[in-house]
């Protein structure tokens, strides 16, 4: 099944706008910008978590007419600090047992499914929350600083693991504060301001 194009059309969040851009299947867009400029708010609008103006399309599906839980399964948002609602790690996954290869790629022990969430370090939480979203097999991933809590080696492992999804056709919208990371992963680089998104010249 071909992955449809994500198109953000004249969207306004509480931080500003209009934000308009398109992302093709298998493309990685990085979004940079100073703290407080509304990067997370833009991702939240793309996932339809906050009231916002403007329309977002995935192929010819309109966000405003798509059932919200279906939309969020297609355009999966991974917040910088994820939430946990059950006791053990595995309870947060549909089929934890199928994920052994991904756990290894992320440097997580295979038996961590039985761990209580309270025992996880912030880096483990971040990687498991990424895995939780990637396991949905969504065509679009909205990544909010996906390596913020990780050391350099783990960051690279996560980058490579995410780029493998991209190679399989997944669209990545990647918010980062690290210019070097943006250079490594981006097909196109954007800078976010209160007045819109601006594409940087080099990628």
């Amino acid at each position: 099944m071909p992955v449809p194009i994500l198109r953000c059309d004249q969207t306004y969040t509480a931080a500003g706008g209009p934000f308009s851009f398109t992302a093709s299947p298998g493309e990685c867009l990085t979004i940079m910008g100073p703290s407080g400029v509304g990067k997370s708010l833009l991702l939240r609008a793309l996932a339809d978590l906050d009231p916002h103006r403007g329309e977002v399309f995935l192929g010819d599906v309109r966000q405003s007419t798509c059932p919200p839980h279906d939309w969020r399964r297609q355009v999966a948002y991974v917040p910088a600090a994820a939430g946990w609602w059950a006791e053990s790690v595995a309870e947060h996954f549909a089929a934890f047992a199928d994920l052994t290869a991904d756990l290894a790629a992320l440097g997580l022990p295979a038996d961590c499914g039985a761990w209580p969430v309270s025992r996880l370090s912030s880096g483990e939480r971040q990687r498991l929350s990424l895995l939780r979203a990637v396991a949905l097999h969504s065509p679009v991933l909205l990544l909010d600083e996906p390596t913020a809590n990780l050391d350099a080696a783990s960051s690279l492992a996560v980058e490579n693991w995410l780029l493998a999804r991209k190679a399989a056709g997944v669209t990545l919208i990647w918010v980062t504060h690290d210019p070097a990371q943006a250079q490594r992963v981006a097909d196109r680089l954007f800078v976010l301001g209160h007045d819109g998104v601006h594409e940087a010249r080099d990628a």
């Binding site: 399964r73 948002y77 991974v78 939430g83 946990w84 609602w85 949905l136």
Partner: peptide
């Protein structure tokens, strides 16, 4: 208090009713 944990379920495609059940 549980906002982050409720929204963590919504972004995974759970329905609001499910996320709020407990």
């Amino acid at each position: 208090r549980e906002r982050v944990n409720i929204e963590a379920q919504l972004v995974l495609g759970r329905r609001f009713e499910e996320a709020m059940r407990t």
